[in-house]
Design a protein around this nucleic acid. Structure first.
Length: 820
RNA sequence: GCCCGGGUGGUGGAAUUGGUAGACACGAGGGACUUAAAAUCCCUUGGGGUAUUCCCCCAUGCGAGUUCGAGUCUCGCCCCGGGCACCA
């Protein structure tokens, strides 16, 4: 009987005792850094989605170990953050207590799934020995001028009562609690990620081995879009009768002959300066109204254009057209220059605005179909075509015209070519308790002063009531002993920053810290970084495309600039897994269809659950969990166990073991090795398992025909092949076969090419591409022979009759196609 | 609206470079064992036709195309999932 509890416990104990998975970070010869995204420990326990990702990653890591690498596979907990904190508040307990409990629970669960973690180097972001160095990171950013404070419109979550970064706002809602976000003007700490926009982009698009990024294209594209580079020109227009100018950014200046108005944002700095006296009241009123609106309201009213005329006009240099200047809320102060030039014929928003305010619409581009009619419906608004009504641009394709007009304007001194990015600086302040206090002090005399490195960590004080109050200041503000301090610069009285940093700062560098997890002397270990990094394989969720994956690339680049590492990109290979769903729909608490992995591990054992999770489908595509499938996998595991159990009870290990048996009886074994190896190499775990299942089915049928030597060889290979997927069973089988050392010290088997190839090949005979017959012939049969045999085939003869064969297509060892 | 994925039996999914569509499982049906059930084992299983182990037709979201040959390539649609979005 297969007793999974006993077997799995036994091997987990042994692994811990022998420390087989502990890497020697200084001496290992073939380092391989196998990383998985560390989980945030929600109080509900390890989610099966985590387990789904982790077992794939572990299977890969174990495969690499069997291929002879010294694999480092660390684990930790991303425990700081709003999510954990919100949960603690919900159940009315203190986050510190909840954290202690969840840590214990998570580590227990992470043990249960049987991954080859190096348990001697765990990292928990919420412990002072870690966040000390997160604060250190902040100080490095500050010293490099990359951490700064500014007042700007930030994302405020009224439910979490804190600001958030742009990346944490998902379709206008808070990433953590799903509530609508408001825009607020606040002074906050930012990281200047925009300074790195171009480099972050360049590395995604080039293939410099030093900046190696073997990433799936969808994730790269996601980041490219988020960074949002756009090339264009800043055109400066004079305001008629005033000494003012308005500068507009546009990425399609070729349409400028059709520009008939200007719109500036309500936040536009020079707005009042360019407004005529008689319009001042109306403009001020409008700006006030917009200010009161939430971001959500502004977006909700997207279609209906509003705005107010300032009374001023700008002159279109190209045409002399007097363009009225408006203020309208559809133009955003934070994008481009905060002012746009309106070309209603060739921009949908401009068209809608022109319709609303009865502004002239001039067509300057006909469609490729030659349509040059008046533009009077929004369907007619085109973005590409052949230029018309545009003087020296007439007849040019719009893309060629763009180049020409840019050169022309720059030459005339009317504009300046520029590049803008959608990416904005990373707002890292959080008005919450459960995070690393930002290590800055405010002194009335000296201004903002960084805490000295020797005084780190700035410890998170004990605080009975850690709830955020929504005042715009974090809960730490209430702790006087914390707030009041002395200025590191002048020694006078000063106040500490009471915001904590974004939990994404914690996770932006944790993979560096694994290498010297318990080191109290320094944040980073240059020597080990050089030896082990960049990370060889990183497996995680694609939902982090513009969050963690972008932030950690940025931080790594900063480390590179500071000389801590000699690579710019942290992950040589990133592999994004898909989503695990249940019975065709997303798992959610409200639907009550969330899988608790513990329950299944109890019932079927970790190995069966692991196998099932990896059998569901392509990991890149996600999988659909079905309970019936789970029990099917359990059936397979029991079958497998029975085979080995039977061997253990009836036979023994042969005295001499040949490594490479070449008897034809076991060509199936070699085929399976080939298939499983190729599948693993391309991350196709499900088909690798299918291949192993086929081998098991074959073995069950055929094993009586094998001699002892062949039989033993089959089982030996089978044990190794299954071991990355089901490590406990792998060890157990290895022991049953009579070996003393761990199976994970063995080498992944090779296959013999000549055994994989069948001597007899089945040829397919097609007539006009349709399958009409099959032929078993010797491998390498010549066309002539195949043709002759095909024509003799009675089915083929029937089809051809007297018809003439016009053409023959012959594919070696595969098919012959006769065209009649 | 734009950018990524994806659409294959009753179900999850295979098909690596254009070359036998449906691997491997699940479910279902039938049988064996059993007092019975569970467990286990064996057989069948895309649809239809002819009718019986032989053969034919239809089938990879829909419609065209390229090709001797298309799930795979091209074009035009439809649907589902995800991301971005008044980004100038």
């Amino acid at each position: 009987m297969y007793d999974h509890k006993k077997i799995e416990e036994k091997w987990r104990k042994k692994w811990r005792k022998t420390e087989i998975y502990k890497a020697d970070l200084d001496k290992d010869k073939k380092p391989y850094y196998n990383l998985m995204m560390f989980p945030y420990p929600s109080a509900e326990g390890l989610h099966v989605g985590n387990m789904y990702a982790f077992v794939h990653s572990d299977c890969w890591g174990r495969y690499m170990r069997l291929k002879g690498y010294d694999v480092f596979e660390p684990i930790g907990l991303d425990g700081f953050g709003i999510h954990s904190e919100n949960f603690a508040m919900k159940i009315g307990q203190h986050i510190k207590d909840v954290s202690k409990r969840t840590e214990k629970r998570f580590y227990k669960q992470l043990h249960m799934i049987g991954n080859q973690y190096d348990w001697s180097r765990t990292v928990e972001t919420y412990k002072p020995d870690y966040y000390k160095w997160t604060q250190w990171l902040f100080l490095q950013m500050y010293k490099k001028g990359l951490a700064y404070r500014k007042k700007s419109p930030v994302n405020w979550c009224p439910s979490c009562k804190t600001v958030l970064s742009d990346e944490q706002v998902i379709s206008g809602k808070c990433e953590r609690c799903d509530n609508l976000i408001e825009k607020k003007q606040m002074k906050q700490w930012f990281f200047k990620i925009t300074d790195y926009a171009q480099r972050l982009l360049d590395n995604l698009e080039q293939n410099d081995p030093k900046k190696k990024m073997n990433w799936s294209q969808d994730v790269k594209t996601g980041q490219i879009n988020w960074i949002g580079r756009s090339e264009g020109i800043n055109i400066t227009y004079e305001v008629e009768g005033l000494k003012e100018t308005v500068t507009c950014f546009t990425s399609y200046p070729e349409t400028n002959f059709g520009a008939t108005f200007i719109v500036v944002a309500p936040e536009y700095k020079k707005l009042l300066g360019i407004t005529k006296k008689e319009n001042l009241d109306k403009v001020k009123k409008y700006v006030e109204k917009v200010k009161k609106m939430s971001e959500q309201d502004r977006i909700a009213q997207a279609r209906k254009k509003t705005g107010v005329f300032t009374g001023s006009y700008c002159i279109n240099n190209l045409t002399g057209y007097k363009m009225p200047v408006y203020v309208a809320d559809f133009v955003l102060g934070s994008v481009g220059t905060g002012a746009v030039v309106g070309v209603p014929g060739h921009d949908l928003r401009d068209f809608e605005f022109a319709q609303e305010f009865n502004l002239e619409i001039i067509r300057v581009m006909k469609t490729y179909d030659g349509d040059d009619s008046k533009i009077d419906t929004k369907e007619k608004v085109n973005h590409e075509g052949i230029m018309m009504n545009s003087d020296f641009l007439n007849g040019l394709d719009h893309k060629k015209a763009r180049k020409k007009i840019m050169d022309y304007m720059e030459e005339k001194g009317w504009g300046e070519k520029t590049v803008t990015y959608k990416l904005r600086d990373w707002c890292v302040s959080r008005q919450r308790y459960w995070g690393p206090p930002i290590p800055m002090v405010y002194c009335k005399k000296c201004g903002w002063v960084p805490v000295e490195e020797k005084d780190l960590p700035v410890e998170l004080p004990e605080l009975e009531d850690f709830h955020p109050d929504g005042s715009g200041k974090g809960p730490l503000n209430k702790v006087e002993e914390f707030v009041n301090t002395t200025c590191p610069s002048c020694g006078g009285r000063a106040k500490r920053e009471t915001d904590v940093s974004d939990p994404f700062v914690d996770s932006s560098w944790y993979f560096f810290r694994y290498l010297n997890a318990k080191d109290d002397k320094k944040a980073l270990d240059r020597k080990r970084i050089k030896k082990w990094m960049p990370v060889d394989m990183y497996i995680g969720g694609k939902e982090h495309t513009v969050l963690h994956l972008l932030y950690s690339r940025f931080v790594t680049m900063v480390f590179y600039d500071l000389g801590y590492c000699d690579f710019e990109e942290p992950y040589a290979k990133f592999f994004g897994h898909g989503l695990l769903i249940k019975d065709g729909s997303k798992m959610s608490k409200s639907k009550g269809n969330v899988i608790n992995p513990d329950e299944y591990v109890q019932r079927f054992g970790a190995d069966s659950v692991r196998l099932y999770l990896m059998f569901l489908g392509q990991v890149s595509q996600g999988g659909d969990w079905r309970d019936s499938g789970m029990s099917g996998m359990f059936r397979f595991v029991k079958k497998l166990y029975k085979i080995f159990d039977h061997f253990g009870k009836t036979k023994a290990k042969p005295k001499i073991i040949k490594d490479n048996l070449t008897s034809k009886n076991i060509s199936m074994v070699h085929k399976t090795i080939k298939k499983a190896t190729q599948d693993l190499e391309r991350m196709s775990f499900n088909t690798a398992i299918a291949a192993i299942m086929e081998m098991v089915n074959w073995y069950k049928k055929e094993h009586s025909k094998l001699n002892d030597e062949e039989n033993f060889y089959c089982l030996k290979v089978l044990a190794i092949l299954i071991s990355p997927f089901a490590p406990h069973l792998g060890e157990e089988f290895w022991e049953i076969l009579g070996f003393k050392d761990s199976i994970f010290l063995q080498t992944w088997p090779d296959y013999k090419k000549e055994l994989v190839k069948e001597e007899q090949v089945e040829f397919v005979i097609q007539i006009n591409g349709k399958l009409r017959g099959r032929l078993k012939l010797a491998r390498g049969a010549k066309e002539k022979e195949v043709l002759q045999k095909a024509l003799e085939h009675k089915k083929i003869a029937k089809h051809i009759k007297e018809k003439e064969i016009k053409k023959k297509i012959f594919i070696k060892d595969k098919l012959i196609n006769l065209v009649i």
